[in-house]
Simulated scan of single mutants.
Amino acid sequence: MDIAGDIKRTFKEGSVLTRLIYINIGVFLLLKIIGVFFLLSGHNMRVYDWLSVPSVTEVLAQRPWTPITYMFLHQGFIHLLFNMLGLYWFGQLFLYHFEGDKMLGVYLMGGLWGAFLFILAYNVFPAFESIRVPMLGASASIFAILVAVAFYDPNREIHLFFIGGIPLKYVAAFYVLLSVIGISSTNAGGNIAHLGGAFWGWFYIYQLRKGKDMGAGLVNLVNKIGEFLGGLFKHKSKMKVTYRKPPRDDHEYNRQKHKQQDEINRILDKIAKSGYESLSKKEKELLFKQGKK
């Protein structure tokens, strides 16, 4: 049984959703194993302190990486389990409409907005004046994905235990309302971060409908960093062969067809508003190919 090989293969061939789940689980297991060695040596492990986003701006200035690292960090198994279940459920819905790069952008920017609102609230509101707490977890990013897909496809029904079918917009509204109420609980910072992620999910789709992908810049940066790091450990071939993989199943096929039809509809709307000459070269080529089918 080549478990490591299977994990490497599924990570490499899997979707962005699969990779995000693997990274979160991998970070959790790695830190727990490191924690065992710290425990046996009789020392306290401060790794979580160095990776969680702090509420104090002076500490944040010393740890500027934390608004990124905190969104892949979970201290307890139950925390990890529920976040990964939410990421999987809502991530699947998101990928039905959009490609993986957009999901990565929403995840990362949603987490950053969650961290921003958390830090802002703890340095503005008098209720948090004497409280110094760090924050960790992927929930702000998951809220961004949930609200984004709910705003894009609000009437899509999902089935819940004991309730049955319910439109996605009500699920998103329920979780956002819980987070607002939860600010008065012991996890005020986490609930505030949820609202930051939710805002980004709404704002992202709002801008995307105007033709602006507000997460593309960050995703391009991440891809370039990944290519650079990959190049350090992998010999580059002079010949590059690219090919398009066929859809793996009916769900993937339907998702691709749905995405293609949405793009055609967008181009037709653009022609109706601004005329054929307003189309880019790529849009004209896509419309031409579609007309030959």
Rank of each mutant, 00 (worst) to 15 (best):
M71Y: 01
W65H: 02
F116G: 05
F90R: 02
Q62E: 03
A127T: 09
L108T: 10
Y96M: 12
W65P: 03
L30T: 14
V133P: 06
G42T: 05
V59T: 06
I142F: 02
L80Q: 02
Y107F: 04
L51E: 09
V133F: 07
A127M: 15
L85N: 04
V27K: 14
A121E: 02
P134N: 05
L31W: 14
L108Q: 05
L87T: 01
L60Q: 09
L51F: 08
I131V: 15
R46G: 14
M103N: 06
A121G: 01
L31Q: 13
F72H: 01
F28G: 12
I142P: 00
P54W: 08
V124M: 15
Y122Q: 02
W113H: 14
Y107L: 11
L112G: 06
V56E: 08
I25L: 11
N83D: 08
Q62S: 04
I33N: 13
V47R: 04
G105I: 07
G86S: 05
N44K: 14
G111C: 04
W113S: 13
H79S: 02
T69W: 06
L73D: 01
P64Y: 07
E129A: 14
R46W: 15
S141K: 08
N44F: 12
Y70C: 01
E99F: 03
L120D: 10
A150Y: 00
L60F: 13
V124F: 13
L120K: 08
I119K: 03
V147L: 05
H43F: 15
V36E: 14
M84N: 04
Y88P: 02
G76E: 10
P67R: 05
V147M: 02
A150F: 07
Q92N: 05
I68A: 07
L81I: 09
N24C: 15
R46F: 15
I119V: 13
G110I: 11
Y96F: 09
A148N: 07
M84D: 07
M103G: 12
L31P: 13
Q92C: 03
F38K: 11
E99S: 12
L87N: 01
W113T: 14
L136H: 08
A61E: 07
L73F: 05
I33V: 15
I34E: 14
L146Y: 01
Y96D: 11
S55W: 02
A61V: 07
V27W: 13
V133H: 06
I145G: 01
P134H: 09
L60M: 06
H74S: 08
M103W: 09
V56L: 08
R63T: 11
L40T: 14
Q62Y: 04
F94R: 05
V53A: 11
Q75P: 01
S55Q: 01
P134W: 00
L146H: 00
L104R: 00
I142V: 11
P126L: 13
L95F: 00
W89V: 04
A138R: 10
S139I: 11
G35E: 09
L60N: 10
F72I: 08
W50K: 11
A115D: 00
M45N: 13
